[in-house]
Measured scan of single mutants.
Amino acid sequence: GSVVKEKKEKALIEVRPYVEYYNELKALVSKISSSVNDLEEAIVVLREEEKKASEPFKTDIRILLDFLES
């Protein structure tokens, strides 16, 4: 629970300088966080969101995924 939350919060802070739609990304992460149990599940849902998103938000999600998977 809290470790996953920390990882996601740290990821958002780390990617902030590189993303165009930070507030939207943060809102998406919050929405996903409330419906998943762990980081792996969150990553799966983020990948689905990435497929549906259009640029440049798609790239923002990709940047976040790269950080979460590192």
Score class of each variant (00 low, 15 high):
G1R: 03
G1I: 11
G1L: 02
G1F: 00
S2E: 09
S2N: 11
S2I: 07
S2D: 11
S2W: 01
S2R: 06
S2T: 08
S2F: 02
V3F: 03
V3D: 12
V3P: 10
V3T: 13
V4L: 14
V4P: 06
V4N: 10
V4D: 12
V4M: 13
V4F: 14
V4W: 15
K5M: 13
K5Q: 13
K5V: 11
K5S: 12
E6V: 07
E6T: 08
E6R: 07
E6K: 06
E6W: 07
K7M: 15
K7S: 08
K7A: 14
K7T: 12
K7E: 11
K7I: 15
K7D: 09
K7N: 06
K8F: 15
K8V: 15
K8N: 15
K8H: 15
K8G: 15
K8P: 14
K8Q: 15
E9G: 04
E9H: 07
E9W: 14
E9T: 05
E9I: 11
E9P: 04
K10F: 11
K10G: 04
K10T: 07
K10E: 08
K10N: 07
K10M: 12
A11T: 04
A11E: 03
A11Y: 04
L12P: 02
L12G: 01
L12D: 02
L12H: 01
L12K: 01
L12S: 01
L12R: 01
L12C: 06
I13N: 12
I13K: 12
I13V: 07
I13Y: 04
I13W: 07
E14V: 09
E14W: 05
E14Q: 09
E14S: 12
E14T: 07
E14K: 10
E14Y: 12
E14A: 15
E14R: 08
V15T: 02
V15N: 02
V15Q: 01
V15Y: 01
V15R: 01
V15E: 02
R16Y: 14
R16V: 07
R16C: 14
R16P: 14
P17C: 14
P17Q: 08
P17M: 05
P17R: 09
P17A: 07
P17N: 08
Y18T: 09
Y18N: 11
Y18H: 13
V19E: 04
V19M: 02
V19T: 02
V19S: 02
V19R: 01
V19H: 02
V19D: 05
V19N: 01
E20A: 15
E20N: 13
E20V: 15
Y21T: 02
Y21C: 14
Y21W: 06
Y21G: 04
Y22M: 03
Y22E: 02
Y22A: 02
Y22D: 01
Y22T: 03
Y22L: 03
N23V: 12
N23W: 13
N23E: 14
N23T: 09
N23D: 13
E24R: 14
E24I: 10
E24F: 10
L25C: 02
L25P: 00
L25G: 00
K26Y: 15
K26E: 13
K26Q: 07
K26R: 09
K26W: 14
K26P: 00
A27E: 09
A27V: 06
A27D: 08
L28A: 01
L28T: 01
L28I: 03
L28E: 00
L28P: 00
V29M: 12
V29S: 02
V29G: 01
V29P: 00
V29A: 04
V29W: 15
S30A: 11
S30D: 15
S30I: 12
S30Y: 15
S30N: 14
S30R: 08
S30F: 15
S30L: 15
S30V: 09
K31G: 05
K31T: 08
K31A: 09
K31P: 01
K31W: 13
I32Y: 05
I32Q: 02
S33N: 05
S33H: 05
S33W: 15
S33A: 11
S34W: 14
S34F: 10
S34T: 09
S34L: 12
S34P: 05
S34D: 13
S34K: 08
S35Y: 14
S35G: 08
S35M: 12
V36G: 04
V36D: 05
V36N: 05
V36K: 04
N37F: 13
N37T: 08
N37S: 10
N37A: 10
N37V: 07
N37C: 06
N37M: 08
N37P: 08
N37Y: 14
N37G: 07
D38H: 06
D38V: 06
D38G: 07
L39Y: 08
L39K: 02
L39P: 06
L39E: 11
L39F: 10
E40W: 10
E40M: 09
E40R: 09
E40Q: 09
E40T: 09
E40G: 09
E41W: 05
E41R: 05
A42T: 13
A42E: 06
I43G: 02
I43Q: 04
I43T: 04
I43H: 02
I43D: 01
V44E: 09
V45H: 10
V45M: 14
V45L: 14
V45D: 05
V45I: 10
V45A: 13
L46T: 01
L46R: 00
R47T: 06
R47E: 06
R47K: 10
E48Y: 13
E48A: 13
E48V: 12
E48D: 08
E48P: 00
E49Y: 11
E49A: 05
E50H: 12
E50I: 07
E50G: 08
E50A: 12
E50L: 09
K51A: 11
K51F: 11
K51M: 10
K51E: 10
K51H: 10
K52N: 09
K52G: 06
K52T: 06
K52F: 07
K52H: 07
K52A: 10
K52L: 09
K52R: 10
K52E: 07
A53Y: 08
A53V: 05
A53P: 00
A53I: 03
A53G: 02
S54I: 09
S54W: 12
S54K: 06
S54H: 09
S54G: 05
S54A: 10
E55V: 12
E55Q: 12
E55T: 06
E55L: 11
E55Y: 13
P56F: 04
P56Y: 04
P56A: 04
P56D: 02
F57A: 01
F57C: 01
F57R: 01
F57E: 01
K58F: 01
K58Q: 04
K58G: 03
K58T: 03
K58V: 03
T59R: 14
T59L: 13
T59S: 12
T59C: 12
T59F: 14
D60R: 04
I61W: 01
I61Y: 01
I61N: 00
R62T: 04
R62V: 03
R62K: 08
R62S: 06
R62Y: 04
I63W: 04
I63Y: 08
I63H: 03
L64C: 02
L64T: 02
L64D: 00
L64F: 14
L64M: 05
L64N: 00
L65M: 06
L65D: 00
L65C: 10
L65W: 02
L65I: 10
L65G: 04
D66T: 14
D66C: 15
F67H: 08
F67D: 01
L68Y: 04
L68F: 08
L68P: 00
E69S: 12
E69I: 09
E69K: 11
S70F: 13
S70W: 13
S70Q: 09
S70K: 11
